[in-house]
Design a protein around this nucleic acid. Sequence first.
DNA 1: TAATAAAGTTGCTTTTGTCAAACAGATTTT
DNA 2: AAAATCTGTTTGACAAAAGCAACTTTATTA
Lengths: 306, 306
Amino acid sequence: MSVNLEVVREVSEFNNYYNSLSDLLNKHLAENNLSLSALRVLVKLKQDEENSTAGKLIASLGIDGGYLSRILKSFETNQLISKRKSAADGRTWFLQLTPKGRKLLEILEESSGTSIRQLLEPLAPEQQHALAGAMRTVRHILSDDSRISLDDITFRRDLQPGDAGYLMHLHGSLYAKEAGYNIEFETFICKTFFEFLETYNSSKDQVFLAMHGNQIIGSIAVLGHSRYATQMRWFLVHPDYRGIGIGQRLLNEALAAARDKLFQKIYLITTSKQEAAIRMFKKNGFRKSGGEAYAYVGIAADGREV
Amino acid sequence: MSVNLEVVREVSEFNNYYNSLSDLLNKHLAENNLSLSALRVLVKLKQDEENSTAGKLIASLGIDGGYLSRILKSFETNQLISKRKSAADGRTWFLQLTPKGRKLLEILEESSGTSIRQLLEPLAPEQQHALAGAMRTVRHILSDDSRISLDDITFRRDLQPGDAGYLMHLHGSLYAKEAGYNIEFETFICKTFFEFLETYNSSKDQVFLAMHGNQIIGSIAVLGHSRYATQMRWFLVHPDYRGIGIGQRLLNEALAAARDKLFQKIYLITTSKQEAAIRMFKKNGFRKSGGEAYAYVGIAADGREV
DNA sequence: TAATAAAGTTGCTTTTGTCAAACAGATTTT
DNA sequence: AAAATCTGTTTGACAAAAGCAACTTTATTA
């Protein structure tokens, strides 16, 4: 892939900036007689619980073997870690934190927390959240296993001011990028949102939003059009978040809500271009009903099929 | 201000993450026989051009005096900097980069660039931009002079897919926060956007967007309702970006466009709550015209006032 | 003018990290 | 099965990075 020059510059400046900042954030290490490398070892030991060995640490932290050996030795004399000889390989030792080591890590986290708090203290709450979000983004983009898990995603059922606009934005920009739609499509979306907002009633209409932090990254809605039929709309998952089950989760919520409210039929309209979505609809019992509309024969409370 | 626990955790994890990353990004220093501190000194010398002294460096970089003295001495023997005795104070020396020092910095930037490029190489272009944006955000929030200047803002005249939705989002969420409006207001906004989109025509309608990176942070529109009258709408600057002239700049653009197209009257509708906006309108020649509408007597091409 | 302070330097020390060789157990080769 | 090779870890020697305290020189102040 090609690399954008502006991006390189920004990363470089960020790196410069952060180099000076990290002094500040890591000053608590000196107070506890630890080097940055030693901290990283400690943290890694906590993460990899039970089956870490010196070799693995060398590989994962990129640290020099000799240096690590000494760090570990000092950890051992300070009773921060304990070694357990491997049965399979007489050369290797399994390393684990002792309660004392665990305790030290807690203390370190606590004192690093105070530095951080001092850094954040002058910031307004929104700025703090924006900062956290940006840092999460950086980490997320740069880490190889950049997959987000469902655990990072929260779900919301209420429609707050700004949400409708953001949903419209997501639809407009994503469909433009992925299906080549233009602004006319956004006009259409806008119309549907207006009609929806005008008659919005939480007893008949349900909106489900998948959130990452305070950003909407997925949505679905179940709109009650009549006593018996309901339309599903605005089903979308942001491309960065696809493939981890958010779509299915949203669909489940929507179907459950439709059943709860005793709707007997759910229909939705889509186009043949939405292959992935159509596959998911089919898997969940939707059937094509002519034209571009898919109709779902729902299990209504009275068992009738429509 | 209170500090959110989640934010502290995120910053802490980010710090951990970045500590391991900075090894990678700074490996070029070893190749050039420089320490991180030495690099920071060099960079600072370039920034503070002409009037840096050892004392200032100590204060701004938080580096030890003795250590700095040695770094500077080595720079001098390598002819990377030159010293100039202060006339006012016999103890201090002014430091400046020599052409050779400047050259070295360039080389360093270049080789840091290659590390960065390697880091970015596997990323898709959008991810690269997202990364740059997030890094800019972090840096911006944390740097004391968190003021953005007009230079950081770009302006756009075209309406791209997703823009209308995002504008609606901005209006909905900001007015909710600042004026306590609820979702009904967003419904109204949605209606105006739909009407607008439906009849959008770039020859009569103009939209101006203030962008920071690829985020819309301000907007204004001039909608041609008749041959002679035009309505100004969607005037808004995101609160984080207020007070640096973005609003005035948008207003200028809008008025200029209205004049260009020979509209003789610009009107806009607002509420008394929008005090700052109203002050700006008045300053730019708008006059109240009864009710909640302000009408602007424009200088049309034929000089008539309406 | 003596006392004190500030800017910068130097000597000494500790900490941090690197490199190469050594060592011991595991694996492969002959 | 012994020799050779490989792998995970340790040790010794060393160099670079950074901090501390004493010291020199020039300014400022009482």
